[in-house]
Amino acid sequence: MGEYLNFHYDVDGENFVSAGQASVELKKTLRRLGLPPETIRRLSIAMYEGEINMVIHAGGGEADVDIYEDKIVIVLKDHGPGIADIALAMQEGYSTATEGVRSLGFGAGMGLPNMKRYTDEMQIDSTVGEGTTVTMTVYLS
């Protein structure tokens, strides 16, 4: 597997205003590492959507980013309500977000599809009542 760097972020689920802080930190880190701008943007958007999801659906969670020589893996873990029908949740436009969340500019049903769009691989493991883990991989060419 080789050597890798790990960055851990706690995502505060109480504060929508500060949501996105982990994504900002990750973006700065990826810039420092000198990754291509397009790769940084893809990872930043995927992380940001995931972070927003954890805040609005799960009361927060945690993110681990592992940076290998040939790939970057983001693991987002929460202890929220879980996703009952993952295929349905992946459909563009489907959302369980409240009107309050929509008024804040999210809940358009694009979060998970966007995360899949901007990464090379995405896996969702979810158990209703226990939580959700989303694993996203971007390969470095």
């Binding site: 996105g20 927003i52 804040l104 500019g105 694009m110 966007n114 769009r117």
Partner: peptide
């Protein structure tokens, strides 16, 4: 809708919006 914005990636873009909260700027930043 910021998630719609996030589905749309272009270089050197400008965002027009009537939404006012800090996530608008975060979205533009990302």
């Amino acid at each position: 809708m910021m998630s719609d914005v996030l589905a749309y990636v272009k270089d050197q873009a400008v965002l027009l919006t009537g939404l006012v909260n800090s996530q608008v700027i975060r979205t533009a930043e990302m």
